[in-house]
């Protein structure tokens, strides 16, 4: 009878403790979460060494990316980056040329058009070439009429320019359409190379962060060997023992991300004066843009992910080796 009674009591305990266990599960997580932060704060110098390495490793690719992004912004609103010269066919009447000029100027993609007639071009050539009088020997003017076209800013991407060129080439009055934009293409492909390079650097530095966190956690595990052994002897599961180390990695990563953000923001602040000076000299209103909230978010998430993975690797490798004997 007494046994039945106690069994009933036991059942009650297990029933009520399901909710209680869930709550205490979260409480334990929060405890470890705060406990590991406290441990990190109690040894600020050692923690700073680890987190600063992570911060610098994250700041390098993020900073390079930011430089590239700003550079892209500069080249995107590069006035007069591309200039199209239309060499017109001979023997086209003045009126037709005028009409073509106004038609082109009315196009949405065009900022302005200037007409250089064959005579004007000849005058110019005489003045600057130094052939002056010898050109007088020519019976007629060999130079064509030229329209110099400046595309609008919003149409100055390579693809849009190419489409514009194709349109001009189809025009019956146009003899040759020439685009002076090889250097822009080169610039864009250099930027592509730089972009790929940044990805490679980012991947290498991510591995470096994993190794730094992994090594720090490995030392941490070795220092706490005795504690781990005692915990195992009194019935701690691997999950329980692993938890504080994973949270430590989590904190290292997130603090490292915050340090990276600070480094970049301070660098931009230092650079902004001289960059404003420089763009002022070019008559541009360009100002350098920072990482913003999304950048901060990405840095923190990246740091967090790398910190957690690094500690996971270390924990997986080294905790197994510590068993009571």
């Amino acid at each position: 009878m007494a046994e039945v009674h106690s069994k009933k009591k036991n059942n009650q305990i297990t029933h009520t403790s399901i909710k209680g266990k869930t709550i205490s599960y979260f409480i334990r997580h929060i405890q470890v979460f705060l406990f590991t932060l406290g441990t990190i704060c109690r040894s600020p110098f050692a923690s700073l060494m680890t987190t600063a390495v992570i911060g610098i490793a994250l700041a390098l690719p993020a900073g390079l990316h930011l430089i590239l992004k700003n550079f892209e912004a500069v080249t995107a609103n590069w006035d007069g980056a591309a200039q199209i010269s239309l060499f017109l066919k001979k023997d086209i009447s003045e009126e037709k040329v005028q009409k073509l000029t106004t038609d082109i100027a009315a196009m949405d993609e065009i900022e302005n058009v200037s007409y250089i007639s064959a005579d004007m071009a000849m005058e110019e050539f005489k003045k600057h070439s130094g052939f002056g009088s010898s050109l007088d020997a020519l019976d007629n003017n060999p130079l064509p009429d030229v329209l110099v076209i400046k595309p609008a800013i919003h149409s100055s991407s390579p693809e849009k320019i190419q489409r514009l060129m194709a349109k001009f080439r189809k025009n019956g009055m146009v003899d040759i359409a020439q685009l002076d934009m090889e250097w822009i293409k080169r610039l864009y492909s250099i930027m592509d190379v730089v972009r790929d390079g940044i990805w490679i650097a980012a991947a290498l530095l991510a591995v470096a962060v994993l190794l730094v966190v992994g090594n720090t956690i490995r030392l941490d595990i070795q220092n706490k060997k005795e504690e781990i052994l005692i915990n195992k002897l009194i019935g701690a599961t691997d999950v329980f023992i692993r938890r504080p180390f994973l949270y430590t990695g989590f904190w290292y990563g997130i603090i490292g991300g915050a340090i990276a953000f600070t480094l970049i923001t301070v660098s931009i602040f230092i650079l902004s004066d001289s960059i404003n000076n420089l763009s002022g000299l070019y008559g541009s209103s360009f100002t350098i843009s920072g990482l913003g909230i999304s950048g901060l978010f990405i840095l923190l998430i990246t740091g967090l992910g790398l910190g957690l993975s690094g500690s996971w690797i270390a924990v997986g490798r080294h905790l197994k080796q510590i068993e009571p004997s």
Binding site: G20, K21, I23, S24, Y25, I27, R28, I230, N231, I234, G235, A236, T237, F240
Partner: peptide
Amino acid sequence: ALPMIIQGVSH
């Protein structure tokens, strides 16, 4: 308290 902490007993 360690064995109880390990088992997640309430505070």
